[in-house]
Design a protein around this nucleic acid. Sequence first.
DNA 1: CTGTTAGCGCATTCAA
DNA 2: TTGAATGCGCTAACAG
Lengths: 332, 332
Amino acid sequence: MATIRDVARLANVSVATVSRVLNGTAKVSDEAKNAVLEATHALGFYLNANARALAQKDSEIIGVLVSEVSDPYFGVMVRSCEEVAHSNEKILLVAQGFHEEKRELRAINSLLSHRCAGLVVHALAVPDKVMAEYMKSFPYMVMINRVLPGFEDRCVNINNFRGMYLTTKTLIENGHRKIAYVNSSHRILDADERCNGYRQALLDHGCEVNENLILKVSPSLEGGTTAAHKLLEHKDEFTAVACYNDALAAALMAVFADKGIKVPEQISVIGFDNLFLSSCLNPPLTTVTNPVDIMGKYATLLSLALYNHQEFKLPEFETKLIWRKSVRDLEK
Amino acid sequence: MATIRDVARLANVSVATVSRVLNGTAKVSDEAKNAVLEATHALGFYLNANARALAQKDSEIIGVLVSEVSDPYFGVMVRSCEEVAHSNEKILLVAQGFHEEKRELRAINSLLSHRCAGLVVHALAVPDKVMAEYMKSFPYMVMINRVLPGFEDRCVNINNFRGMYLTTKTLIENGHRKIAYVNSSHRILDADERCNGYRQALLDHGCEVNENLILKVSPSLEGGTTAAHKLLEHKDEFTAVACYNDALAAALMAVFADKGIKVPEQISVIGFDNLFLSSCLNPPLTTVTNPVDIMGKYATLLSLALYNHQEFKLPEFETKLIWRKSVRDLEK
DNA sequence: CTGTTAGCGCATTCAA
DNA sequence: TTGAATGCGCTAACAG
């Protein structure tokens, strides 16, 4: 590929002039400008972003690490990050961690080596201690969906406790007292926080917590299928199921439908995340919003601001109930 | 951030030695190696990927352009691309085009400026002529989901005609003769190809093509909702609906369920793509596979191979029926 | 096995 | 308004 020198030669100007017109960094005579533009076009030239990053000590790249892009949750998140990047004339470098510590570490290191002008990390397998080192060394690094003690102001997440408290309370207010909970088996804070929200809601409303009714499965479609089968052969009674997330709930409901069990007539189901697909389910899933899009946006904005040594105040990320049709009011 | 020189100084060796141990490009004495490793760790050093790309005239980046990462279709695709990138020690630069020509062009130019070692492009708004210029100038550029005359061997896509012929034929074989078709309103080849598949299947089986029963909407959830309402107030009869894609079908079915119309008892529905969510619907959606994951994989492999001046033979991308429960056999 | 050095392509001083 | 020259951080000859 042509270099800036080729363009300069063809346009009969110096490389400095070419740089100036292509970047608009200084006044250039119309004559020179046109010559440069023509030459640029003739050669099909694009400034080399690597060389530029080196010379400017500043890149146009923002790095993002997620578990898995095909997961609708992360798809929405990455989309938001990309939009912020785009409006700041940047482009996204994306890596996937797949919940594996090795992959996550490799990804972070790779992103760091690219000298990103912003870094948003969703890593759940890397130990706190290691994450803390990174956070200390790279003050523009922002974490998402995880709270690291000492770095709370660079951790973007929702109040999981409150969210799951809300779904459980909703079930209780609709007359349910025997409520199963399908939790995530991942060893992340979210899972504990949400489970605590569930427990507290039960306690606050005088319901008993039945440990037999708390399952742990992979927080995916497959996990939902497993959970559904386990619940169906469960000896303890329950009238409703609260789920760690919508994906679980969706798969669960698919199994129920397949077995001829009617939701919500026989069993009520409530989710968490308000994924795009949840409104398409039959019945549409009652759930709670998880504003991933907004979190992705603000995480990126925060990282960018920190990178540029600017102030940035993170907003609160609200979670709210989306009432649809998968919960039955037992009192009617 | 520290540079290779800082490391060299601290380790008491030359920069060349540091480079050698960090890249494993040549034998280095254990003594020197350890010193380098220690210094590297002490300084929290990562080789600068930009400088390296410049020196090596080769980057570790693969560029991908899609319409929108949050679209489950593209989520799956990007995931595949990333996996291939990862196993080739590369990392993905991701841009979104949102079906807008300007965005697509900016994205392509940005990816080019990064001197990617591979380039997979899903652009549907950029005119053929312009795309052809790019394809000519960058022989490692690969297109996905679009066929550009003259560059067929670098265009990765399925046989849309055959896929939609298959779904329509399936409906016909189950006794349906009045079949509506919900097409995409995007001006892309896919839409025409699929619609032709639908028409041909009808003709081949002696069914009439009723132009009134062919709708065009945005190929999204919103589009599905619109289509459902239009169909419900349609005066012409039909017993089944073939959809351009699963997203449309999902939203369509949600509206039907809401209106108390039973699928498949009253209306049969068939999709296209076999998205992850389709098996969660109630009833689970009968559809046809669209191997996006495999396409993403091979598109990336092809681009990488071309970049490295290697031979690479693209496989056929098969589409096959996934029989579930949204189609009723009228003859039973 | 190791160090010196010359670029890689660009932005940016500094002079003119 | 322009150009010459320097250096960004690294790799890869080359010489030792």
